[in-house]
Design a protein around this nucleic acid. Sequence first.
DNA 1: CATGAATGAGCGTTCATTCAT
DNA 2: TATGAATGAACGCTCATTCAT
Lengths: 194, 194, 194, 194
Amino acid sequence: MSPRTPEQSEQIREERQAQIVEAALKLFAEKGLHDTKVSEIAAQAGVSQGTVYWYFDSKEELFEAAFINQFESYVQPFFEIFTDEERPAADKLMDIAAASIDLFADKTELTFIMLQIMATREMADILTHDIEEYYTQFGVVLPPLFEEIGDPDPTATTSMFIAMLDGLMLQCLLGPDWFDRDQVLAQIKVKFNL
Amino acid sequence: MSPRTPEQSEQIREERQAQIVEAALKLFAEKGLHDTKVSEIAAQAGVSQGTVYWYFDSKEELFEAAFINQFESYVQPFFEIFTDEERPAADKLMDIAAASIDLFADKTELTFIMLQIMATREMADILTHDIEEYYTQFGVVLPPLFEEIGDPDPTATTSMFIAMLDGLMLQCLLGPDWFDRDQVLAQIKVKFNL
Amino acid sequence: MSPRTPEQSEQIREERQAQIVEAALKLFAEKGLHDTKVSEIAAQAGVSQGTVYWYFDSKEELFEAAFINQFESYVQPFFEIFTDEERPAADKLMDIAAASIDLFADKTELTFIMLQIMATREMADILTHDIEEYYTQFGVVLPPLFEEIGDPDPTATTSMFIAMLDGLMLQCLLGPDWFDRDQVLAQIKVKFNL
Amino acid sequence: MSPRTPEQSEQIREERQAQIVEAALKLFAEKGLHDTKVSEIAAQAGVSQGTVYWYFDSKEELFEAAFINQFESYVQPFFEIFTDEERPAADKLMDIAAASIDLFADKTELTFIMLQIMATREMADILTHDIEEYYTQFGVVLPPLFEEIGDPDPTATTSMFIAMLDGLMLQCLLGPDWFDRDQVLAQIKVKFNL
DNA sequence: CATGAATGAGCGTTCATTCAT
DNA sequence: TATGAATGAACGCTCATTCAT
């Protein structure tokens, strides 16, 4: 009956937020921003509608929060690979390919949401910006790696490489059986001389 | 004085329908199904809201009609390449790559809409089905071509090839400047031995 | 190819009008004024929507026309009985009862429409007026007949008598099997001393 | 500060629902289902349109709810008379007649709505079913009563009796002055030997 | 006379958001 | 903090009516 300590309060806040974000992520991925009702998110999260608005100012903000929150953990693995000084370029590139495929298969929900953002020109610019930055990073980091392994046109090859990974993402989304992970990785190794 | 002949009626019907589909396509691509209001489509098409409903039973039906209508002309070029008996496999594959890139750049609107459909799991199954069929076709036609040019693993290579083209589509959508068409085509030629 | 004579024109007019009124009557009776669309009436009558408006200024006018048109032939039998000088009062009253029951069974459609009019307070006053006049007529004509046969309270008896006939109408509408025409007529004869 | 207790919530729910049903009943009776706008019901009930939909899924459901809700209290008096073991048959029948007339005069609104339901063939079957059941009850309970008082054809007499009461209902609806309650009751007593 | 395409006001319904408790 | 009742702007859709042909 004693009032909660600030720490407890904080903890509750974080738990509730996480609950709501998780619920939102699931439903947004399934049905998109507009077909997901706040009431559904509340129900899925086991809280009332009012509570959703206690933690987020609007549905859109919740969407952004859900996206950004997850996006960082999404991008993390790549930056770890990028910054590993020791590993040879060829191995790094193979690691990126593998990480990419596995990530898409794992974090399907976020992937769907990314796609939704890209599929609509007028969607919140912040998000589009985040995604563009992510692509840009790849565009900066990858060419030197391809150069290192003697690729004749590192820029174009980078485009192909990124494109291929993104395309595999689409195939993942359509269904888990569109390609064989290991066979495809093997061919990537061959085709890109890794 | 006299009522319109059936031919005139039919012609009017087709014209109006085309107007509306065109307007819808544009707006759907820009803003997605939900953010596009029927009133906007009507205004863009230069007709009244009621007229939209004279030709289509619902906004959703219009979305599907707009999609399917365009989808066929979208897919056409590929089937023409597929069925050309004379052309060597390597050339066909290069033609497909070029056609794909050019198509995405050309028919941006439909491409956006396809992406929207894929980005939402619960979207009209008919449409998803159409798209899946399209992918399946590629999965059937391409492996023999890669086999013909001596590729060691035609299935996996096909996955890579399709993925790459789709990924380039995504890059097209993000903006026209993400890659250089000709350089990338040149690298495709090299990497896939075409 | 020669133009129609005025007589032919007139005949066509009347035929068309009759077609439309008949169709309207049927649909109004089934579904009521509001649930019957003009397009349905047109289809049922085998003409275009525009044609309906060529003959009637509005849906409401068509409703009234359909009602009034039929109402006269509905009321006719009663006035014939009323004005037959020769027939004894008791026989007249039995005739009225029989005519009433048979009429309700016969002209079900109009009966439904009358009921709809009565069921809604704000319905076109003209129609309500017609119906009230019809009741009033009965209220004027019947008491003397009951007086003639020595009824102690002709006014109250008239109310009962009319009410009973109307109530039998309701039973007719609910279904044809709610009462046995001849048995009920026999009891009317007994109860009202006819 | 603290959220409402479940009891408070429940109470509010019931109050609001009653408000809305009452408003709906009034307007439906006056103008019928279609001519009554949800916005009008909301205004009459002193709530917003949204609130109407918080309590009822659709206008039609509200119509049914309003009807059913009231129908039970409508029918109640009759069943009390039916089940009174002591009272002689003749008295029961007179009670029924009196109760019927008074009910129609009292609960005019529900009576109008019943009539609307009966006047349209295609109206919600549940409601028609309720009304039919009500008639059937009378058809079961009344004949033995008439038999008890020595009526020669209890079935036919029952039809007449019910019909008369319904017909008086119609006269009530047309206006309060169409008949004199006590005089008519007196004549009923005479004619039906009660 | 007749057609049916076109109109647009109007209504039912939804749902993000607010707020009293 | 949390609830869920309440709000009302907004939108999809209907359909009586009009009008060019």
